[in-house]
Amino acid sequence: MNRQSFSIAVATSVLLGVIAATPPIADAQERDATPVQPSFTQGEAQSGITMLYQWKGNNPRTANVGTIKSADGAEWTVPAKTHFHAATKAADLYNEANGVEPEGIADVELEAIPVIDAGGDEVFTAYVFGDNYFEFSVNGKLLAVDAVPMTPFNSSVIRFRTQRPFTIGIMGVDWEERLGLGFEKFKGAPFHQGDAGLVAVVKDAADETVSVTDANWKAQTFYTAPLKTKECLVRKGTIRDSSKCSTEDTADGTNYFAAHWPIPENWAASDFDDSGWPNAVTYTNDFVGVDNKPAYTNFTDLFDAPDSDAQFIWSSNLVHDNLVLMRTTIGNQ
């Protein structure tokens, strides 16, 4: 999705909320083994360019990945290293690319969707709308990935079998067209900063909601771009906040910077210690801008249920943070 600007007031309140929900810096550093200092790259990725997906319909887009080296010699895959080609694709809740366009949840044949074994006897169903791409894990096992990396905007349904308590880990990626820079093309602007967001609902076999995305989830940033200057990025303990960085379009962003952090190998496992991660930040539907996305609006009775309203979550910055890992644990009920 695209936004022309990022509210300073919202960003400020978001940052304060994240800091309030995060342990003291010294304690967080002791618990989080991930290096606090990022690796910085500058400019656009020029090597290892591979096309993952191409949409030729309305608002045509090509989802590529590439590699770029930072000043410290590390090599990074941008916007993210994914399992798009190798993993099971999540079933379509709504996907224009595949001709799956139900008018509501009543038109979805859930029983026809295979149940993925995640270890256990209880069946759960997860409904996910992600901007732009997600990978869905349970107890560290990757179950399914988004069928569309960038556009058209789609939503997904994942049925799986496990036992409580269990941990859900979701990798969210906001795709980019200028690899390594975080920019995309929008209304003629070649260097536009897009935004992100993810919403999910998890139900049990009795159709009772057992989890929704909210501020109780954990969310940590691992790739941030574009940065006009490296100094705009605030790093304090496990806080990686880019809300002070410029969100304006530019005529030439080829010299902008990006910040990268290595992803822990076991980040989605149930025994991974995420206590040092910030809590997820929530965003309203209006702020994210989903009123014209039928992949979401056709299912508002699901995502916006009065008794269990799922909220869009991300890190503290929808615009700059392009790779965010999100976690929650669903306990016994």
Rank of each mutant, 00 (worst) to 15 (best):
residue 136 F to K: 08
residue 101 E to K: 13
residue 296 Y to F: 15
residue 31 R to Q: 08
residue 93 L to A: 11
residue 127 Y to H: 11
residue 160 F to E: 11
residue 113 I to R: 03
residue 102 P to K: 07
residue 217 W to E: 08
residue 59 N to Q: 13
residue 40 F to V: 07
residue 185 K to Y: 04
residue 53 Y to M: 07
residue 161 R to W: 04
residue 242 S to P: 14
residue 97 A to R: 02
residue 140 G to D: 09
residue 76 W to V: 04
residue 19 I to S: 01
residue 291 D to N: 15
residue 108 V to K: 01
residue 138 V to N: 04
residue 256 Y to H: 14
residue 57 G to I: 01
residue 332 N to Q: 14
residue 162 T to H: 06
residue 166 F to T: 05
residue 107 D to F: 04
residue 262 P to W: 00
residue 161 R to A: 13
residue 92 D to E: 11
residue 231 E to S: 15
residue 302 L to G: 07
residue 116 I to H: 08
residue 301 D to L: 12
residue 155 S to W: 06
residue 314 W to V: 05
residue 184 E to A: 10
residue 1 M to P: 08
residue 26 A to K: 08
residue 130 G to C: 12
residue 311 Q to S: 15
residue 301 D to V: 03
residue 130 G to R: 05
residue 84 F to W: 07
residue 260 H to M: 00
residue 188 G to T: 06
residue 102 P to W: 09
residue 42 Q to K: 09
residue 168 I to Y: 12
residue 277 W to A: 11
residue 81 K to C: 03
residue 226 P to F: 05
residue 7 S to L: 11
residue 83 H to S: 13
residue 164 R to H: 00
residue 93 L to E: 09
residue 300 T to V: 14
residue 232 C to K: 13
residue 302 L to W: 09
residue 194 G to V: 04
residue 242 S to H: 06
residue 144 A to S: 13
residue 56 K to P: 02
residue 248 E to Q: 15
residue 172 G to E: 10
residue 121 D to W: 05
